[in-house]
Design a protein around this nucleic acid. Structure first.
Length: 234
DNA sequence: AAGGATCCCAACCGCGGATGT
DNA sequence: AACATCCGCGGTTGGGATCCT
């Protein structure tokens, strides 16, 4: 039942890394840098394949790694980025200095996915699993109350709109559209952690910033809009 | 206390793209 | 152009830790 070895070479060590191996790899890279991962294990005196060394360095040994649990703000940003980028974890991870794509992917799969399902949202499309939104809205007095507080219907469908927009942009890029602007550039004005995301040229959105998204997410009424959506869909 | 179920994450695999020859 | 090699990415899994009964 076991897995096939990732390298054909027999005798290479697999499984969890020991402290000694970590030290060897760390010392080697800090002293010599990385030219070719394939050569790293040989030169560092490790019985590992280059791929394994690369992964260990990137996901665990890198000195700039941020340790500890992800914050709520980071979690919200992951959701937002995932709604636009899909499962492109490495792209998403570039917005989180010190976090790895593996870490974000794991966090998504083990926690956010569940949270979204509990809120009645499809983790793939970010759309409510429910289709009869009209019935929901008309039968839900609270929803109307929230709208009277300033939450428009478009607010709830915001994430799906972003995804659709991103899909369209990707399609455009794949077709080799003369407008060569990258998808990220077209919708993110300043994508560094902590700065505002500004979505432009989208009829359905107008202008929308990450800050306002954060405000939305922080507002308990926003999440109330989804309460009960999942109950009718096991 | 025991043991079964579930959660979580480090590590692995296979694939596709980039680069070199 | 064709092939080989390497790297990086995303999906998946093994197994330790934790929770539940």
């Amino acid at each position: 039942m076991g897995r096939q070895p990732c390298c054909e070479k027999v005798g290479l060590k697999r499984g969890p890394w020991t402290i000694e191996e970590d030290n060897k790899l760390m010392n080697f890279i800090l002293n010599n840098g990385i030219q070719c991962w394939r050569l790293v294990p040989k030169l560092a005196g490790l019985m590992r394949c280059g791929k394994s060394c690369r992964l260990r360095w990137i996901n665990y040994l890198r000195p700039d790694l941020k340790r500890g649990a992800l914050t709520e703000a980071e979690e919200d940003m992951i959701i937002e980025l995932h709604s636009r980028l899909g499962n492109r974890w490495s792209k998403i991870a570039t917005h989180f200095p010190g976090r790895t794509d593996n870490e974000i992917k794991n966090y998504w799969n083990t926690r956010i996915k569940k949270k979204m399902k509990l809120k009645g949202l499809d983790p793939v499309t970010h759309k409510p699993v429910q289709t009869k939104t009209r019935d929901f809205e008309t039968n839900n007095g609270e929803m109307q109350h929230h709208q009277s507080l300033g939450f428009q219907e478009t607010t709830v469908s915001l994430i799906p709109n972003l995804k659709d927009y991103d899909d369209q942009m990707q399609h455009k890029t794949e077709e080799g559209s003369p407008s060569n602007q990258s998808r990220d550039d077209s919708c993110i004005k300043n994508s560094d952690m902590g700065s505002s995301l500004v979505f432009q040229n989208k009829e359905s959105l107008g202008s929308f910033t990450m800050d306002s998204y954060q405000n939305l997410m922080d507002n308990p009424f926003f999440w109330d809009c989804f309460t009960g959506l999942g109950e009718s869909f096991p």
